[in-house]
Design a binder for these strands. Structure first.
Lengths: 187, 187
DNA sequence: CGTCTAAATGGGGGGTGCCCCCGTTTGTCG
DNA sequence: CGACAAACGGGGGCACCCCCCATTTAGACG
């Protein structure tokens, strides 16, 4: 990214802050125009900085998502491989549950990579070492990929967004241990 | 439901047919105004018959969802308990995958029951006997509920709606068998 | 410190969709 | 056949998104 002009940087910062507040209050579907007004900028400015709602959401949650990703190495140090992975997946789930609507942006971007921060990629990179360690310890089936594990967590987050009655942590537990018969091809 | 006037019934029918076509072409987010125009009715008429988009979606998919629900008893007759359940869950998944966006309406209605057909309830009723049979055969953990099983399928459907790159059938397989360690408290 | 240029801005218009009001039409039943 | 309630639909109000383009301003350079 080439250097932004000082005023542009300031605008961007105010937009992100306003968006953060609006998302907290109204969810990620908050009106972009209202966010622009709160930030004291014109709506055109908002659209110039963030070409899509998704880009804005990702900017707002970049820090917290990064923190969750960083949590992975801490857990790896403090727990054996299996529990480290499962606790981290819980942490990812908690993170999305705490921010209704966030889940939709942690799904791989359908369109393209705009070069900026991508929450999904950050989480994928973070989980990779946990997963190989857990596989090494025989705690996870060898044929499961990083993407699949994250997809299951995302799926549950999406459901929780739509159905307040669901118990996401319970569902994650079910998905991890399975509710049907274990295939007997285990090592 | 009290008897509708003849013209009202005709309007309703035309709206549902137009909506069916529009949903197929543009997804369930198709413009309601366009649907009304296609149906040859005013938008007010559409809104009088279907107070929300969700109601319309449910009316459009009532038949196909009912068919999937009916499939349950056929599978129960032709397969042993475990496979019957798992094949049916696959069928539910296929049904939602075939109609992008349908998944959001198969989630329990957040607001209320308007007395009409509710796809989620129909599926829940259909899966119940399959689940008890599978539990009886020791093919499914005893502590799993009907709602939880359907929630997992719905979760995967929702994810597939957002992420075309995901492999929903694979994820369902993972959720059924689990990717982590089996809890050893099995009977 | 003045000048100049490209970057940045924002007001506002165009387009779309949702929802509902209310005057008009049309079934239906006595 | 007449009357009344049910159903209709055009169109207005509102909110949103997105972008055009005239205007302002940062900051590099002499």
């Amino acid at each position: 990214m080439k250097t932004l002009r000082a005023d542009a940087l300031r605008s961007r910062e105010r937009i992100v802050r306003a968006a953060e507040a609006a998302f907290r209050r109204h969810g990620v579907d908050a009106s972009l125009e209202a966010i622009a007004k709160d930030a004291g900028v014109g709506s055109a400015t908002l659209h110039r900085h963030f070409r899509s709602r998704r880009e804005l959401v990702e900017a707002v949650f970049q820090d917290s998502t990064g923190a969750v990703a960083a949590e992975a190495s801490r857990l790896a140090a403090e727990h054996p491989p299996g529990p480290a992975l499962f606790h981290w997946l819980q942490a990812v789930l908690d993170h999305t549950l705490a921010n209704r609507g966030l889940a939709t942006t942690l799904v791989p971007a359908a369109d393209e990579h705009h070069g900026g921060f991508c929450g999904h990629d950050a989480l994928e990179a973070a989980v990779a070492p946990l997963l190989v360690a857990a596989k090494g310890a025989g705690q996870v089936r060898a044929d499961v990929t990083v993407g699949e594990v994250l997809s299951l967590v995302n799926a549950i987050s999406l459901l929780a967004d739509h159905d307040p009655g669901a118990d996401p942590e319970r569902l994650l537990g079910l998905a991890i241990t399975g509710f049907g018969p274990r295939q007997c091809e285990q090592h």
